[in-house]
Design a protein around this nucleic acid. Structure first.
Lengths: 352, 352
DNA sequence: ATTAGCACTCAACATCAGTAAGTGCTAAAA
DNA sequence: TTTTAGCACTTACTGATGTTGAGTGCTAAT
């Protein structure tokens, strides 16, 4: 159990290290603590903090640096989110006041705003994913053995894809497939349709078409395009600033990670939904070393879920260095999730 | 005018510098020249080359490094493209043998292949741009004041976009607009339609609709999406390897440049079509210092046009360091443009 | 429990040869 | 006239050595 002053010392070490990036010494702390104590006292406190594993030395006579555990302790016990300052608030509201045509634009813009305000990397995910249902499906012959497949979802997303049809396929067959899908599948959640493709669709289509392989491929292909997680990432290049990578190959791997939907889903914890690391504000912080992936070692992921009412939940997240102004960033995220949730609800209410 | 041996010395300096990245000394050259001369002789030749501005010293007693002008001379007079080695050829053909559904995939894959073979950054541009014509236009009401606009081009590209319609717009008006566009504009080149939007479309639509602003916006928006240059870039992160940037901000600017369609168009010279820098193989090389942009200083852009017959011309390009194995890369580009042109012609012939 | 004082540690920086790679120049050889 | 051997000279790089300053841990006094 830490004393009050030890906590303060830890907090100050984290604050200073954040600002300067340099190890912090006892004299520096002495200057900024609210009470008047000597540097020797602080040295003693630091020794305690060090044996508790919360801070580290870079070499035997250096100042102290927060350790992974130190950050964890800070996040869990010491952190108080700051209010978003009015300039930032203004910027957010100004941008959100624009007119958005596509539902996605709102979410994409969010990533942009977040990355610009923080100078880190922002990742956002729209609310549609889970709750999205199939609204319509069309096949339009384009001539010359090509056909345009068009899939519309309840969230207003439209996916189109052109296919080359085998010689054996006739116009009537196209009609039949279209009819079957619109009769049987419209209104069902996309995810469910995906799962039951083989068991449901094959028998239905086989009634009209002898070898339904082509159509199965087609439907599968366009469905997976529609149901793929649509991450919006902004500020990718900021990684160059905050990930102090000496190895170019690691940097490349990191970018690969960010660019791969699967790893991103994994990063955001889209698979398991335990709330570890969440604090009272519904904003969760995961430190890099808590991820299985070595690459994220000195990074930190701040993640918040926003609730767009009946339209489902979405995610906003920020990837940055372990050493960042958490109070500010968490304050920002907390405000932003509400703001975005409201805007999305507005959007769908007005024209959803 | 350079002597035969001076040319050889220049060539060898470039070759060595390429392989090692280190300044090249007279003794090194001595070992690799076909004729037997002493290092002193080569030093004399080097002095000539230096006063001609073709090579440089990094400090007063260092070996020599090719200068910008040296590279230019090499490219214009000394370079002989190498045949593509059979492994690479195999890889190209294997990948091209896959089935492609969208016309674009072929061009996108090309960028991927090129970047993987060279370890540089590849940029490709499909052939459709100039010759693309409007094939069809549809407006489908989606309910709840939304409308889906669908635009199909002769190259098989389909662009869809949803819009929120003002309260005042009626279904008949949608019908009318659709009819006008399909009657009047189908078959015309997209570029031309874009240019004449205001002069042609406004009077046509005004006959049916009092304030055509909304529709003009709509048509304009979807047209520009359809006619935007579709660059495919692959190997972006390789820049980290070959652009030996010490300044992170410069690196960021460079990435911004690559990510901005306008600058990219500019880089590839899509505006002016003079053939400067082109050699007999139809592959042109522009060295970084020849671009107005400071950022590209130590880079080089290898660019080739491929001719997909009646389907128009496209571009493949590689961005890399000034110091690269030009013979190989140019050989590759020369082969690749033919290969890609053939594949694209095949694609459109089979189902275009 | 806190503090002053002091010995100690270590990175960072500067200084100072010594070495190796490479040059330019001169005078002799081809 | 061109090429070559020889040599003095330049410079980056390397490693050893010393100095400084920020910081620590420990002890003994408050």
């Amino acid at each position: 159990m830490l004393t009050k002053r030890e906590m303060l010392v830890l907090k100050e070490i984290i604050r200073h290290y954040n600002e300067t990036g340099q190890p912090v010494g006892s004299k520096t702390i002495m200057g900024t603590l609210p009470m008047k104590v000597s540097s020797a006292t602080i040295r003693n406190d630091m020794a305690t903090l060090e044996s508790a594993g919360l801070i580290e030395k870079t070499h035997s006579s250096s100042g102290r640096v927060p350790s992974d555990a130190g950050y964890r302790y800070y996040l869990d016990h010491l952190l108080q989110p700051t209010m978003v300052d009015s300039d930032d608030l203004n910027m957010i509201q100004t941008i959100f006041r624009q007119k958005f045509y596509q539902g996605d634009e709102l979410v994409a813009q969010s990533a942009k705003i977040l990355s610009e305000l923080t100078h880190y990397t922002a990742i956002t995910l729209g609310p549609e994913v889970g709750s999205m249902r199939l609204e319509g499906f069309q096949l339009m012959p384009l001539g010359n053995r090509r056909v345009l497949a068009l899939l519309i979802t309840t969230s207003g997303q439209v996916v189109n894809k052109t296919f080359v049809i085998p010689d054996t396929v006739t116009g009537e067959q196209l009609e039949a497939v279209m009819r079957v899908i619109n009769d049987q599948l419209v209104g069902k959640p996309i995810a469910q349709v995906m799962d039951q493709l083989d068991s449901h669709l094959v028998p239905l289509i086989s009634r009209y078409i002898h070898s339904p392989d082509f159509f199965m491929d087609l439907v599968h292909s366009i469905l997976s395009e529609a149901s793929a997680d649509r991450f919006h990432i902004s500020g990718k290049m900021n990684i160059l600033d905050y990930a102090h990578m000496n190895d170019v190959d690691q940097l490349k791997s990191l970018y690969h990670l960010i660019d791969t939907d699967d790893s991103l889903a994994n990063l955001l914890g889209l698979d398991n939904h335990d709330d570890e690391g969440s604090n009272a504000h519904g904003v969760t912080v995961r430190l890099g070393h808590e991820f299985p992936n070595q690459l994220l070692a000195h990074m930190s992921l701040i993640r918040a879920t926003y609730h767009a009412g009946e339209y489902g939940d979405g995610i906003i997240a920020i990837l940055g260095p372990s050493s960042m102004p958490y109070s500010k960033v968490i304050g920002l995220m907390d405000l932003f999730r509400d703001e975005l949730a409201r805007r999305i609800a507005d959007y769908y209410r007005d024209h959803g």
